[in-house]
Nucleic acid binder design. Structure first.
Lengths: 181, 181
DNA sequence: CAATTCCTGACTAAACTAGTAGGTTAATAA
DNA sequence: TTATTAACCTACTAGTTTAGTCAGGAATTG
């Protein structure tokens, strides 16, 4: 496991998705502007997130990205691993021949530490962050302030088209069961 | 906080130091050979560890590196931070102006996660790993197997010179109070 | 004295980061 | 139907970091 800016960008973007998940897809252009990350770079990161089955893209106007699973079922370790391909844990590459055909001790110790770190990050879900008290209100307030009108517009349009009639999208997770690309 | 191979190398090397601390200084050449890390690269890493006050060097024949403090007082986060200079946590660099003069939400969330990670790694000491059952025995056994005779020789020589008479070096931590470079 | 080992600085190939550029494809709105 | 939107894809790139080499100097020991 390795944690760099790449992983941080991805976690940040995924949190953004999780916060706005109920309002429909979030465009990369939106995230790019809000978080100060270049659009093309975001596209590269999201290509990996998509391949890992963490997000799904919705094309066309009103499209964007949304979580492929409920926020409660996505943990931080997954996100980081999908963009920062795990670095080789040991020098001997599993062969374990660094000490006369046996694994040397420190490798084993490091592997243990590495596992513990992974377990720790696996235990933290996106939902845990989004559901902290005050976050939804703050989020909505700030989106209005900065000009994320797109989401509001999209949501209104969707309601007009009757999109929300047959799903519980606005309230939660049912949409996650729909088929994707 | 960022975790890369650099940090892994350092943690691995520090664990090696901790394991052999009772037998006296460990040479970088030793670690280099055992862990498969180039000597000069190790020297660069140890320059930082030394500046951070985590290790101290002992020059001359029979010299090497040893922990500057007892293994129980050195945690993993310190080691990683001393070689992998902490990356900037947020885009707005503490100015918090990324959303109309306010910190944007995800930055705050990421900062929280980052802190939790740091706390987690701070809570793990070198001693916790070294003192796991069976480690000292395994360590000694393997050192003999692979040809870490240097340590044995050094230790014998030290005993002959009476080095261990006035300290509890062979048993523990008293040597840590001696002055260094 | 010679050998050992830390210590320092300059240099470098390869990899990674963070982006740019220039498209194509699918869905929606006019 | 046509224009627009936004995902999706590929190739390229300046700058940084990684992981290392090389060449020497300084302290300590035998």
């Amino acid at each position: 496991m390795r944690i760099s800016t790449k992983g941080r960008y991805s976690v940040t973007a995924m949190l953004d998705l999780a916060i706005h998940d109920k309002a429909g897809p979030v465009t990369l252009a939106d995230i790019s502007q809000c978080q100060g990350i270049s659009l093309s770079y975001l596209e590269q990161l999201f290509a990996r997130l998509r391949k890992s089955g963490l997000v799904k893209g919705v094309r066309g106007p009103g499209g964007g990205y949304r979580l492929a699973r409920p926020a409660a079922e996505i943990n931080i370790a997954e996100i980081i691993c999908s963009v920062d391909e795990t670095m080789d844990v040991t020098r001997c590459k599993g062969e374990g021949n660094c000490q006369n055909g046996e694994k040397c001790l420190t490798h084993e110790l490091w592997a243990t530490l590495s596992n513990r770190l992974h377990e720790f990050l696996s235990g933290i879900t996106l939902a845990q962050f989004v559901e902290r008290p005050g976050i939804p209100e703050l989020s909505m307030q700030r989106d209005k302030m900065i000009g994320r009108f797109l989401l509001a517009k999209k949501q209104a349009a969707a309601i007009n088209r009757g999109v929300f009639k047959n799903t519980t999208d606005i309230a939660g997770n049912d949409l996650h069961n729909l088929k994707s690309n």
